[in-house]
Computed example of a mutant assay.
Amino acid sequence: MVIEELYEHQQTLQKVIETLTGDIEFACKMIADCIKAGNKVLIAGNGGSAADAQHIAAELSGRFVKERRALPGIALTVDTSALTAIANDYGYDHVFSRQVEALARPDDLFIGISTSGNSQGILNAFSAATNAGCKTLGLSGRDGGKMNSICDLNIVVPANVTARIQEMHILIGHILCKAVDDLF
């Protein structure tokens, strides 16, 4: 069982290397340009993708590897008062879009994470980010879902197993953080 899991992870990584290197490089440029211009990165996802959003935001505001100044990486998944108030008043599908409306400014970067690419709350947040003038980056899997047509760049991990998709998402998140570290 263990060896099969490791081989499946390795096969997914190999597919990512073969098919997504250019997209990941472009995503690195997106986040680097955002940070260089003094803008912020807003990140959202549900479940395991929420944990990934928080992880990436923490690497920006804390540090990844290199000692550098704190950077504005904000996970929209952590304010329980906002999440529950918005869910209560507007419905769960709006918990991220309302926060994007409140926090996003032109040329900020919104990163939405959804393994299916079809999470309605994430799709609504992409719409709000676009309306605010943000750049938009998706991390998805399977066939990319509806995120394919709503973000500036949707990095679609070529896998159908949620665990494999999420493993690649955090790897891509770390690569994005490395690109930011390289600015300093």
Rank of each mutant, 00 (worst) to 15 (best):
1 M>P: 11
2 V>W: 14
3 I>L: 11
3 I>R: 15
5 E>G: 09
5 E>A: 15
8 E>D: 15
11 Q>S: 13
12 T>D: 08
14 Q>E: 12
14 Q>N: 14
16 V>A: 05
17 I>V: 15
17 I>A: 13
18 E>M: 14
19 T>I: 07
20 L>C: 01
21 T>K: 14
22 G>L: 13
25 E>N: 11
27 A>N: 03
30 M>W: 00
30 M>Y: 05
30 M>T: 01
31 I>H: 10
32 A>Q: 15
36 K>L: 11
36 K>F: 00
37 A>S: 13
38 G>H: 04
38 G>N: 06
39 N>T: 13
41 V>K: 01
43 I>T: 12
45 G>M: 05
46 N>E: 05
46 N>F: 00
46 N>M: 01
46 N>L: 00
47 G>W: 08
47 G>Q: 13
48 G>A: 12
48 G>T: 08
50 A>K: 13
51 A>C: 13
61 S>F: 14
62 G>T: 02
62 G>R: 01
63 R>Y: 01
65 V>L: 14
65 V>A: 15
66 K>Y: 08
67 E>C: 01
68 R>D: 00
68 R>W: 04
70 A>D: 12
71 L>T: 01
72 P>D: 06
76 L>P: 00
80 T>E: 07
80 T>Q: 08
82 A>D: 09
82 A>Y: 11
84 T>S: 04
84 T>V: 02
85 A>L: 00
86 I>W: 04
87 A>R: 04
90 Y>E: 10
91 G>I: 05
92 Y>A: 08
95 V>W: 05
96 F>E: 02
96 F>D: 03
96 F>P: 05
97 S>N: 00
98 R>Y: 09
100 V>T: 08
100 V>Q: 02
101 E>R: 14
104 A>L: 03
105 R>S: 14
105 R>A: 14
106 P>T: 04
107 D>A: 12
107 D>Q: 14
108 D>S: 03
109 L>F: 03
113 I>P: 04
115 T>E: 07
120 Q>V: 12
121 G>K: 12
127 S>Q: 15
129 A>T: 09
131 N>W: 11
131 N>M: 09
133 G>I: 11
134 C>V: 12
135 K>P: 09
136 T>I: 05
136 T>A: 09
136 T>M: 06
138 G>S: 03
138 G>F: 03
142 R>Q: 03
143 D>R: 08
145 G>D: 03
146 K>F: 12
148 N>G: 08
149 S>C: 10
150 I>C: 12
150 I>P: 03
153 L>W: 07
154 N>S: 06
154 N>A: 03
157 V>D: 02
159 A>D: 05
163 A>C: 12
163 A>P: 12
165 I>D: 00
167 E>Y: 03
168 M>D: 07
170 I>G: 02
170 I>T: 14
171 L>N: 13
172 I>W: 00
173 G>N: 01
175 I>D: 01
182 D>E: 15
183 L>D: 05
